[in-house]
Design a protein around this nucleic acid. Structure first.
Lengths: 251, 251
DNA sequence: CGCTGAATTGACTACCCTCAACATGAGTGG
DNA sequence: CCACTCATGTTGAGGGTAGTCAATTCAGCG
């Protein structure tokens, strides 16, 4: 129970989450964003190329679509969303990224980012210049392997989102999103039943292909059915089993 | 006009598309699936690790979800679909892959494939053993770079699918799929207006999150509106501009 | 020739979107 | 302290799009 935060204490308020002086070697998140298998010396070499800037404030851009690509970023605290803007100007949220997760992998393909990344709350990130990472990957085979795996994981996760959007029910989509956030909190040793949503209803709706009204209605319905308790952005999962059944769909 | 096939002649029936003796150096598709920037010697080294087996028949599996990962595959002729199966047994088509495109990148993340890949018609593939590719990438920096880019392209394409599924209209989804296939045919110097759909209506519906009936209705509606002409699997785009407007959505 | 699977078309229904009104809370300035 | 605005979220009523169920057509094939 030592580092599980009650949900009303924001994660990023924990004492050292924004501390620039954290190194990869002693970062709490290194089992998530780093290869566990890296040799200690190699972790140091990676740590040396990582740049840690000042935290982003809510609403600030980490980078914008069409910016020239030069770095990937590991989220260290807070939360961000990735947004792609279609030719018609419509925004589409393509993903939410929590601490330990990496954004910017979309930029490699054509040397410019295809998404914009925006902070949902005060967030700090580790910038990893890609050409440095690329050089290092040639020298450290396990780092190359790890980076391949990181990108592959992004691919499989996006395929899960495609599967999610393919299935019809709005209730199932919301349930899946809640379970996803719950599981990702679990990986960071935070409560899986009890957390603060970092994103707005609008962002949730945009991400899941639903309107804000539908999102709101589903939340109240799930609450009526005693599956979750909602208080603004605070979520308590009161019936995990039911939520999983709903996420899988009733067909 | 020399290698553009009329649409009623199936692509894979072209004289040498299934020929095992094609090498990476003289393959028509190498500008798509290979780094154009590779040195000739390096292309040879890559060619030496590529394995070309006998063609897959329609319905045959290239690999199955949960098989151990050891190779990625470039499609040389024909077409395949990637399918992920959820815990409830529901199938979800996560993508269609045409000649020059690469499948299997989902397998790196956890050493097993997360999708199954199934031939939609007679198809031949180039198998690229991943550990050999990995070694070679350490020796040829531009190959490492290319492979990173290949994975990044997969990520951005899947984000486009997420955007597609996020927007509401069924008509827009179908229009986008047609335009996608059209553009990919264009890259291979095939007709962009005039092609055979390799997949069934069921697959299209599954991929786009629509029922087969809706897919059918949209096709007939687009035909009534003189945007396309449909004859079973043969598509003729008669009004490309309108199709693009529909794909972007009328909002 | 009948069988099977794929596709089309129609009638009806349900879910979600649209439009609208209202509630809540944060921030600002009087 | 209150009034005001603005952004965000909730709730309600009604309509439209796509799903469901069902019948029919069509092509391929033993």
């Amino acid at each position: 129970m030592n580092d599980i935060q009650p949900p009303y204490i924001k994660i990023q308020d924990a004492h050292c989450a924004h501390d620039k002086r954290v190194s990869c070697g002693n970062c709490r998140l290194n089992t998530i964003c780093l290869p566990i298998s890296l040799h200690l010396d190699d972790i140091d070499r990676l740590n040396n190329i990582v740049q840690r800037g000042k935290p982003l404030q809510k609403g600030e851009y980490l980078y914008r679509a069409k910016d020239t690509f030069d770095s990937v970023y590991a989220i260290r605290s807070g939360a961000v969303k990735a947004v792609s803007i279609s030719e018609t100007g419509n925004e589409q949220v393509t993903g939410f990224y929590l601490p330990g997760e990496v954004v910017g992998l979309d930029g490699l393909a054509s040397d410019i980012y295809t998404n914009s990344v925006i902070a949902l709350e005060t967030s700090s990130v580790c910038e990893i210049p890609f050409n440095r990472l690329e050089e290092l990957s040639l020298q450290i085979p396990t780092l190359q392997r790890h980076f391949f795996q990181l990108m592959s994981r992004e691919i499989t996760q996006e395929q899960q989102i495609i599967t999610l959007l393919g299935k019809s029910s709005a209730e199932a989509r919301i349930a899946s999103l809640l379970l996803s956030i719950s599981a990702r909190n679990g990986r960071r040793n935070l409560s899986t039943n009890n957390f603060i949503l970092p994103m707005s209803r609008t962002d949730i709706g945009n991400f899941l292909g639903l309107t804000i009204e539908t999102v709101s209605r589903i939340f109240t319905r799930l609450q009526k059915n005693k599956v979750i308790a909602v208080d603004k952005k605070e979520i308590v999962i009161t019936d995990m089993d039911s939520l999983q059944v709903i996420a899988k769909g009733t067909d």
